[in-house]
Amino acid sequence: MTCFWFRSVLEKQLISMWKKIRVLLLEFAKIHRFLMRFFREVVSPPFEFKEFIRQCYEIGWKSFPLISLTGFIVGFVFTKQSRPSLEEFGASSMIPALISIAIVRALAPLVTALIGSGKIGSQIGAELSSMNVTEQIDAMEVSGTNPFKFLIVSRVLATTFMIPVLTFYVAGIGLMGGYLSIISKDQLSMLSFFSQVFNTIKMVDVFAMTFRALVFGFTIGFVSTYVGYFSSKGTEGVGKAANSAVVASMFIVFIEELLIVQLLSLLT
């Protein structure tokens, strides 16, 4: 009797596990198809250049106020927090070098990507999802327009292009925040601050920052368009899509950061 009960429970568990694995595998297949379609559509004409520019404006230009504030605060606070430890070892003159490495190598791309995931990811996820709910995507399709090219390709390209631009901007404004934090206590000319910064940063650091930003930009665009495009119908679907776009983008950005750091440490 016990043996029979155990077998039936085990059978149920295995079936439920297989169902979950199947759903997961089907989702991976769907993501793969979406990715392949993106690469196919991105190189085939007609190109939606006007929509790409509009998205760059929506994604990039409209993020400047938030990115400026965040970048400045990160630079300022990081410098303020680092100072006591460095002073303890009599190395406060190393602060510009330290913050330049921290900002260019890690903070600028990561902070931009996280802010981007929150602001841009939720915006794209919610927009596409509500277009899905109100049949606007179907309307595009029946009017002879390729909605994938118009909505997905333009947005993914815009995030891939604008996140690096925003990253450079965050790096600049973060360094300015660091400089202001230093001169709030010490005397240091801007010229000597930036000469220390540029003496420390190597070209490979700038390339690494750009590479990271490109990967993060593509990730944010791809994840949020995927989630929005395939959202479930109904107003609840819009909320879920916006939420999933942010959570999934941030999660993948962190994993990518981990992998890129490993990769770069192997290469350099």
């Binding site: 109100t134 049949e135 606007q136 309307a139 595009m140 399709e141 029946v142 002879g144």
Partner: peptide
Amino acid sequence: LQKLRLRIGFSFQNSALYD
């Protein structure tokens, strides 16, 4: 299909205007 759709007009229940 895209070419054929140009010959079919579809009026959606909620109009589906691009807002």
